[in-house]
Write a protein that binds this DNA or RNA. Structure first.
Lengths: 218, 218
DNA sequence: ACGATTATCCATCGGACGTTGGATTAGTGG
DNA sequence: CCACTAATCCAACGTCCGATGGATAATCGT
């Protein structure tokens, strides 16, 4: 196909689309690309093309490539934190309603987390990529992951006190569960069979939650 | 410090060190760098410097950057497969010696796997990085991971038949265990506290093995 | 002993990269 | 209506990258 000279956008400030600010468009495009191929494999010109803008516009809105990457991660993580903290609050409220309701609330929490990661696989991809950067790992866990892990571990400890679990759950068990979930999401993103795979993984985590520390009464 | 003109090595074939072939030196250096920072963040000149050779020598022995990366992965995985298949054979032999011996053999298998990954964190790093490349994921799992998963899952099924476990273990449980272990290794590599962290993770996986599908008799 | 092969380094190429200076145009405040 | 700011694109810079052609020296086969 002959490259017809597309009416190229001329420089200058265009009409502003209030509903989708350029910064959001750029961050969305960059998040997808970074999640798929990682920081170093993605070029700023590529991000700009995916967002439909020039590379200088990307720089104007998000600074250097490193700050763009950080902004993508912070944006994705903000959504994760919001979902998880709200679900944890609801589960904690249910602890007072008796062991059965508490246990149901814990399973609901697990479902919310797995649902969230399945719906947004870029979250998992960005987490795994950043965990593989040894310099950033410690700072990341301190700023982002550890507070959430602590939140969940404390919730499970309170659940044990309320009779919904046989024992409190250490931090390390929560982390292992999180990694198992991320593995599940990575396999899904790589095209593993959908419905059955999901059902089996749900059964795995729920069984782990019920069985590892022993439900008091089945 | 003034850059004193180091007696630079002149071209031409040097005396050969039979015990450490150049190809092995290059692969070792490249494996470390790729595991630490990933394919795109590592330059061939950097690999060459770490191996103490010129970049053209790297190309001479390992071809393009992509084939070098593949060679690193294949070499690391060969060691993993060797360790795991031998451990699985020993465990299978123990299945005939009664449920208790069989159960002990399964725990030994888990220990061998976690020991191996803790000793060679680059194995975990390379696996995780490749799992994050969607194009290669399917081929990788087919060629490398799935046979091992199947080996272990069949072993656990045989263990259930021999009375060491209450139920056969699906593929997905094995994969989840593998991911949990990788998460543990990543945390260790990032400087998490050593001894206690390790003890708690061992307790987690062993308890999962015993408890998730229920040991027949405690 | 001498050609052939192997292993190494040097120099360089074309291209892609991240970043930036500056021109251009739309909106905004007075 | 005019000065100012904000947002966009173009073009370029210097750097680094992966790859390769070619020179050089050690080893090997005969």
């Amino acid at each position: 196909m002959t490259a017809m000279t597309m009416p190229r956008r001329r420089p200058g400030r265009p009409r502003r689309d209030e509903s989708r600010p350029t910064r959001e468009v750029v961050l969305t495009a960059a998040t997808t690309l970074f999640a798929e191929r990682g920081f170093d494999a993605v070029g700023l010109r590529e991000v700009a093309a995916a967002a439909g803008v020039d590379v200088a516009t990307v720089a104007h809105h998000t600074g250097t490539k490193a700050t763009l990457y950080d902004a993508c991660f912070a944006r994705v993580f903000a959504a994760e934190r919001e979902v998880l903290t709200e679900a944890a609050e609801q589960a904690r409220a249910a602890l007072d309603a008796g062991p059965d309701a508490a246990r149901r609330a814990l399973h609901e929490l697990v479902d919310v987390f797995v649902d969230f990661l399945e719906d947004r696989p870029e979250t998992t991809a960005l987490w795994l990529r950043r965990w593989l950067e040894p310099q950033r790992h410690a700072e990341l866990d301190q700023r982002y992951a550890d507070p959430l892990y602590r939140l969940i571990a404390e919730l499970l400890t309170a659940a044990a006190a309320a009779g919904a679990l046989a024992e409190p759950t250490p931090h390390i068990t929560v982390r292992s569960l999180v990694w198992a979930t991320h593995g599940h999401v990575v396999a899904l993103a790589a095209g593993a069979p959908g419905a059955r795979e999901r059902r089996e993984f749900r059964a795995f985590v729920h069984r782990l939650l019920d069985g590892l520390y022993g439900s008091p009464t089945p």
